[in-house]
Amino acid sequence: MNPLIQNYLRSEYAQGKRRTIFCPGCGNGIILGYFVRAIDELKREDGFDDSKLYIVTGIGCSGNIPVPLKYNIIRALHGRALSVATGVKLVRPDSEVVVFAGDGDLLSIGGNHLIHTIRRNVGIKVILVNNMLYGMTGGQVAPTTPMEAITHTTPYGNPEPPLDACKLAVSLGATYVARWVVPLAKQCIQSIKELLLHRGFGLLECLSQCPVYQGRYVIGIDRPSKIMDYYLKITVVSDKPSYGDKITIGKFVDYERPTYEEIMWSIVNKAREGGNYEA
């Protein structure tokens, strides 16, 4: 077992007595490795406090990413991870809230929550793991499935154009938006570090491989390393998000504006000082 990762895992996982529950070659395990490495680098560089780290997940394969970690983890309802994370952030404004969500969880079922969380600029950090379909339930079509792709529910090709999460977030005024792919390890780790140090809402979309369903049906390659090579072939680095034949990757937006919890707590403090409240 890798000793760097071992320091951050829970009892049975740290002893090497239990595996992660992902399929062989799944990108979720790689993303968890990047997340742990980013936290480790931040702790060594400038004393990042990970005792106030809260991780909220939805349902799906990506909801199982933080399960081996020894941090505080909340499993929310399907698609409602952002609402629970908003509650945690409002009650404890000095905490660091990270949300792991999949593309079906965040964009299809929790799409309205995503829109309004970005609009309010709640200071939570979202890592969106995009594998282009619903992996856990058996490979059904998702909002991010490319057009004319074959899945279990679209055997003659997908008739719907895909949804670009980064473009949606940029247009709604998110303060940090980036998209990277799993094979680009250094960029992913750097982006997660920037995301954790960011103040407002941050969205990192990470294109990940699902060799069992996405590999066999959508792309047509079932070897995990070949899917990673395919991702490098279809992506272009740019500063404008687009999600078509060529998927653009890179950091799209990075600026700051007042966050929801700051405005909310200033209102609460103002009301308490005025004395016209009933306890």
Binding site: M1, N2, Q6, T20, P24, G27, G33, A185
Partner: peptide
């Protein structure tokens, strides 16, 4: 360090 970084099950040291 590519093998250590890419291993999804942290089996490589």
């Amino acid at each position: 360090g590519i093998c250590e970084l890419y291993c999804p099950d942290y089996a490589i040291t």
